[in-house]
């Protein structure tokens, strides 16, 4: 039976080949994303130079002549990301500390489910709450020009990234060996001192990763900022100024442009910028992680 060995071999190599090829579609998808974003985004450079794009403050994409200054939009993105991170990251780490260090095991499961549910809230629902409930309230209570502003959007974004930060921090706090805590207690440290001097430093790398992932999510979130941030393309001077982050500009304007126009390419270019920012943050996360692995 000379054939048997061959078929056996084929029955082994065929699945391996098929699986490898299918698995590679992940690389393919990523390559396509990079290719199409670049292909549709780069042509804007024919209409505006990089400095005009990056340093121009005026975003009038359809006036004649069109102005494609993205600085205010990028600034808006950074502002919401920063504000929401400042609000959510400390709170997220606090939650993680509570869950690992204070909360009794029996009820921590309940709180973890609470966090998870918070993470599953669809962004359009939070955006809706921001637009319909929080905005009028803020406007009247604080006598603002408008309740649709940086703070409104940042609070909701904070809610969105909170579960990410808390869950990932909790994992890394959990990974700090119990023996280190015991050692600290043995030295007479209080729980508070143990947390801040032993547990937190021990989990610093993981918490940094969690924070960056949170920042990444805040940067890319769309519906909340589209509905609650006000949409004025200017650099915010206070926390209650309206902003127009990149994501909301893309979502709001994509439907209105004609394919192939400079505006269309400008919007893809924004997508390209967002892609670059998130990818470099991603590389940062991987760097932090791999530094941990080197022993």
């Amino acid at each position: 039976m000379p054939n048997r060995g061959e078929t056996l071999k084929l029955s082994e190599t065929a699945p391996r080949a098929v699986i490898t090829v299918i698995a590679m579609s992940g690389i393919l998808v990523m390559a396509f994303i990079l290719y199409f974003l670049t292909k549709e985004g780069i042509p804007i450079l024919k209409d505006a130079s990089i400095t005009q794009l990056a340093a121009g403050r005026l975003w009038y994409p359809v006036s004649s002549p069109p102005l494609f200054g993205m600085m205010s939009l990028i600034g808006g993105s950074l502002a919401v990301t920063l504000t929401s991170s400042v609000l959510a990251i400390p709170l997220g780490v606090a939650l993680a500390l509570f869950l690992t260090e204070i909360c009794p095991k029996r009820i921590s499961g309940f709180f973890k489910i609470t966090l998870e549910i918070l993470g599953f809230l669809p962004s359009v629902v939070l955006g809706f709450i921001g637009m319909v409930v929080i905005a009028p309230y803020l406007q009247i209570k604080l006598e603002l020009l408008s309740g649709l502003n940086l703070m409104n959007a940042s609070m909701l974004l904070g809610v969105m990234i909170l579960p990410t930060v808390a869950t990932l921090s909790e994992e890394s706090l959990h990974a700090v060996p119990q023996s280190q805590r015991d050692a600290s207690y043995a030295l007479g440290a209080t729980r508070c001192e143990t947390m801040f001097n032993v547990v937190l430093p021990g989990a610093a790398r993981g918490i940094a990763q969690a924070a960056i992932l949170g920042v990444m999510r805040a940067m890319g979130e769309t519906m909340v900022v589209l509905m609650a941030s006000g949409g004025a393309a200017l650099l915010p001077e206070s926390a209650f100024d309206p902003v127009r982050p990149l994501t909301s500009a893309i979502a709001a304007e994509m439907g209105e442009t004609s394919v192939g126009s400079a505006h269309y390419h400008a919007l893809f270019f924004m997508g390209f910028i967002l892609l670059l920012i998130t990818l470099s943050l991603n590389v940062l996360v991987i760097k932090i992680e791999s530094r941990g692995e080197v022993k």
Binding site: T20, M24, G26, L37, L213, G220, I250, A251
Partner: peptide
């Protein structure tokens, strides 16, 4: 191969959803 696939997967996970929408539109 494995390393680049891993990198691709992690990058894919980090892409903002609206950018994926743009990709879907273009592709």
């Amino acid at each position: 191969l494995k390393k680049s696939l891993r990198l691709a997967m992690r990058s894919l996970a980090s892409i903002p959803s609206v950018v994926l929408g743009l990709f879907g539109l273009a592709f």
